[in-house]
């Protein structure tokens, strides 16, 4: 089976500092990523630059088709050398892109209330997903229609403090409901976003729910405890440091349940980054 070549270059359109340490970068690509789906990611690096050595994984925050080509958007937080180098890019700069990579979020057609739960920068892939769902890109027959089966999409966004609640404007455009929390209580619910969800879950019909989440490991872990005994399907997008992005280096392993061995490692880049939360195991 020949897989599609997904290596190409992109041209930076703009790279905007949207909040402290947070940037939204848009790229124009002419050859690849046309059909990139929510939950997928790319490996990105500035063209012709040897330092940083490795490309960095970034989730898709938006994918748009234009006459000039495919526009990709990324929302990223500067945490170290690689993301800092990305933040220095300006319009016209060239980047190398490997992607789209990984498994996308799986849409469950019979679950009409979608809850997206994001912690910090985990907002990036879920925002694209919200937009994708709002535009009914998965079901062209209902596009633009107000049908009885219309999906409800609730976005839960948590951060340490109000200033770190990034990306709200986009979410508000595409979601039926937006719920926020901050650890320090400076905006929204005072506490963690999983605590907020826990409160709300009591009043919801679980048979109609499906959950998607992305964020810090501690958040995913408390989410897995929260829904352990509940019958709600939940997919999470996981992160590990990556070198190749294509399942070759085995650098990005995480622990998962394995029917025959009890547990095993699998690759976030190739087997994920989206996993069923019930398959994850915690050290």
């Amino acid at each position: 089976m020949e897989k599609k070549l997904n290596l190409g270059s992109g041209c930076v359109i703009e790279n905007v500092n949207v909040a402290k340490d947070h940037f939204v970068m848009s790229l124009l690509l002419t050859s690849i990523c046309k059909d990139a789906l929510p939950g997928q990611f790319v490996m990105i690096r500035k063209q012709g630059v040897k330092d940083p050595l490795l490309s960095r994984p970034l989730s898709l925050y938006g994918v748009y088709q234009t006459d000039a080509g495919t526009v990709l958007e990324f929302l990223y937080r500067v945490v170290g050398k690689g993301t800092w180098a990305l933040s220095r890019l300006t319009g016209g700069d060239q980047v190398d892109i490997l992607g789209p990579l990984g498994k996308p979020f799986e849409i469950l057609p019979d679950r009409n209330h979608v809850i997206l739960l994001a912690g910090g920068i985990g907002v990036a892939p879920l925002s694209y997903f919200a937009e994708y769902l709002a535009k009914d890109l998965d079901r062209p027959e209902e596009r633009g229609e107000e049908t009885a089966s219309a999906r409800k999409v609730s976005f839960y966004l948590g951060a340490t403090t109000a200033a770190a609640l990034v990306g709200i404007e986009k979410i508000e455009r595409f979601c039926t409901e937006v719920r926020t929390s901050t650890d320090d209580g400076s905006a929204g619910f005072a506490g963690t976003v999983t605590e907020l969800l826990q409160q709300d879950l009591a009043g919801l019909d679980h048979r109609n729910l499906c959950l998607y989440s992305c964020g810090p490991a501690a958040m995913i872990r408390s989410l897995s405890q929260l829904i352990e005994s509940l019958d709600i399907p939940c997919q999470v997008s996981m992160e590990e440091r990556m070198a190749c992005g294509i399942g070759a280096c085995l650098g990005c392993s995480i622990k998962v349940r394995d029917a025959s061995l009890g547990w095993s490692y699998c690759q976030v880049c190739a087997d994920g980054p989206v996993f069923d939360i019930k398959n994850l195991l915690w050290e």
Binding site: R241, C249, C252, S253, E283
Partner: peptide, 10 residues
């Protein structure tokens, strides 16, 4: 199985 993560760092 290999080692527990994180397994790589630049």
């Amino acid at each position: 199985m290999g080692n527990p993560p994180p397994r790589i760092i630049e």
